[in-house]
Design a protein around this nucleic acid. Sequence first.
RNA 1: GCCGGGGUGGCGGAAUCGGCAGACGCGACAGACUUAAAAUCUGUUGCCCGCAAGGGCAUCCGGGUUCGAGACCCGGCCCCGGCACCA
Length: 880
Amino acid sequence: MQHSPESAIRPYEPAAIETAWQARWEAARAFEVRDDLPREKCYYVLEMFPYPSGKLHMGHVRNYSIGDAVARYKRMRGFAVLHPMGWDSFGLPAEQAAIERNAHPRTWTYDNLAYMRTQLKRMGFSYAWSREFACSDPGYAAREQDIFLDLVEAGLVYRKSSLVNWSTGLNTVLANEQVVDGKCWRTGMPVIQKELPQWFVRITKYADELLQRTYELNQWPDAVLTQQRNWIGKSVGAEIDFAVDGMPDVKLTAFTTRPDTLFGVTFMSIAPEHGLIDRIVPASHRAAVEAFAAETRKVSTQDRIGDTAEKKGVFTGAYVINPANGEKVPVYAANFVVADYGTGAVMAVPAHDTRDFAFATKYGIAVRQVIVEDGRQGEPLTDAFTGVGTMTASGQFTGQRSDAAKAAITAWLEQTGTGRGTVTWRLRDWGISRQRYWGNPIPFVYGEHSGAVPLRKQDLPVTLPDDVTFDGIGNPLVKHPTWATTAKDGSPLTVRTAHGSEPARRETDTMDTFMESSWYFARFACADAEKPLDKKRVDHWLPVDLYVGGIEHAVLHLLYARFFQKALCDIGYSTVREPFKRLLCQGMVCMETTYRDLADGKKQYFYPDEVDVERDDKGRVVRAVAKSDGQPVVVGRVEKMSKSKRNTVDPQLLVDTYGADTARLFVLSNQPPELDVQWSDEGVRGSNRFLKRVWMLVQNNRDVLAKSAAFAGLAKDVQGADQIVVRKIHQTIKRATDSMEKDFAFHTAISACMELSNELKPEALSPAVFKSGVVTLVRLLAPMTPHICSELWHDLGEAGDITAAGWPSYDEQQMQADDADYPVQVNGKMRGKIALPRALTGADLEAAVRAHPEFVAIVADKPIRKLIVVPGKIVNVVVG
RNA sequence: GCCGGGGUGGCGGAAUCGGCAGACGCGACAGACUUAAAAUCUGUUGCCCGCAAGGGCAUCCGGGUUCGAGACCCGGCCCCGGCACCA
């Protein structure tokens, strides 16, 4: 090679420049932030913290690249940005690892998070590392126990025996939110109902506030708000007392959202588990009802829900009296009535409820219409009418509109003492007991006679013993010889009683790990505080300005965290009732799957390098076979990356091959953050190619760029390509700024940058304008690809850090030429363009259009019937 | 069934207030460089007719409003997500 050392072109070597910049940032503690600046100059951006499962996956890379681009953008806009990171480090996989490979959960967890921390640093994410913590850190877990006792004191935690969701795979209890389609959300194993004493957190106390405030969260995705509203499930209606026939002191209370249909009740259906069954069922029917109840119980939760299950019932022999008309109606036990929703008893109105209609038809029960559909007077019902209409055969309410009659009948029920307006919620209290080792111990003890007693705060924290064995059966804490019976100081554990003290045993259940993730965002605001939370700093930083994470937490973490924040307020730790101001749910990282259908209905998946795929010039698959046997395989639909589908890509490999900047650019390019991104090697190479182009653009012209000053004049001061590029610079800054401000639409910001780079041809531009363009390009890309931009900033001869240089600003005046290119439409069809001064408006503009030779040629001799001229936009002429 | 979000080239997607549909990228095709390949660079690329100039058709389907609709209104179809024997 002939190059002298001075003129040697530096190749783009991402690993070298990225690690060098990461070391500089670390040494300078570049991303720490003060807590005492005016709030309007501060910004708190947070990504859902990871479970330390082992190593980063592409989903993490995407999640954190989005958050980091926002954090860096906001810093360039002059904000003091809080951007912390931590570890959701309690949880089941650690215990699974202990069982499978004899690694202690703590060792496994902390080894994993140490490795993942190096990966995060290798990605160049700009975290305030001084605030890092893991939920399993003694300091965090201990403070959570403090909060737990505060919640107990406030009456927000209680213990009761109840039917719980028991995961047969995990040997533990699951929250309702963790049961999906009757199966465990993690293992997919069956969930059965089991009676156990459990700790509950009183989330239902906040049901109304949780629902109402969804209407204030106008920067949350509709999908999440909808899911939360569905989950909370508010139903407004009435409870109506039906006297049991022949038992004057027994009432069967039904909940209904349709009190207006009260006169149409022809039977009542109750849950087979209903508490009054034993009292109201006469001996003659007892055997039949018990048999039915037993049969219903046998069917698992999974099979009992869903449309496929047959609606069955059995007459109980009991009758109740309708308080509205004194009629005697039969009571059925029915398998579709849920014991713990409403009152477990339903007043059935076949004429106006589709399910009751089907049931009545099946069992030959009368159908009585009490609401007439508008325009259908006198027509017999062929199906239940569930709409609004005119009340009929409803005593004093006949003739009213049925929607108005709801209130009227509820008022009448209240006057007569036979019912009351009420609200029923689908939301249940949050069961947090887990029969597991690797979680935060619940700070309670049980005295032999005194029952459950909370520990005193001075006896906290309860710490997990290290010397436990993991055999996969039940909770290791139960089997520990001394832990449950030994106090902090090593003496036997006791509790005070009225007469002194008595031996006690620790609660061996640990807390659901969703407890830890319900307040970590507040702890980040004051990670060094002695108390669990420092109210002043929590209120300073909360609500989180932007929270970034997957939508799979819509009703789990995101609902718990909203609840917890309200509870934290009520026990004095904060006054901010909503934790997250804006929520961005990023899409998944997906990839094509390749599989073969097996005989048993399952699929055998193949890794991409195990198959040969031929495609046509449109990219469609024409032939796909396995290398192993040459037999065909299906190149299937694009699905979320998962190990079981063998369609994952290890981000570490991506970083090692192309560098962190390419990985970051790839996940931010080509689609809005909310949409799924489809992995493709070509896409990654495209991102890398663009970065190499930008790199070479600077390196090939380093002398001229380092020597020149950026263009400081106006577009009108220069001509030709220079003028076009000056305008392009301002247009690009505007587009990139708007993209970031509106929706964090990184992909359109990036395409604006690509357009600008396509215009930056040094041979056609003056050095000053060229430099201006390159400087702008590098600054606009800096939040997304910080390492290469920092390095190029330096190569451009600019002083200081690129973040400090700030986000560039634009001038609308510099964006457009004096002449506007007006498209000319004839009868709505594009027929040509004419250039006219932008300054012209009104009659002058119209006259100029009419006089323009191009316009005259386009219109020819056709008579002009109408001429629309929109200044700066378009000309449309109606002819003929 | 109820609630929410969608439907634009071969693909991902763009189009700010109703004003040039398809930015940018990927892929494909052609060319340059190369012994060759890779890499890189240049050009073309919605579909149809045409040598071309040009014309026609195009944003799920059918109507409507408008000088002008991917965007607004009415009706329908399809896809994705959530909830659900919830009374």
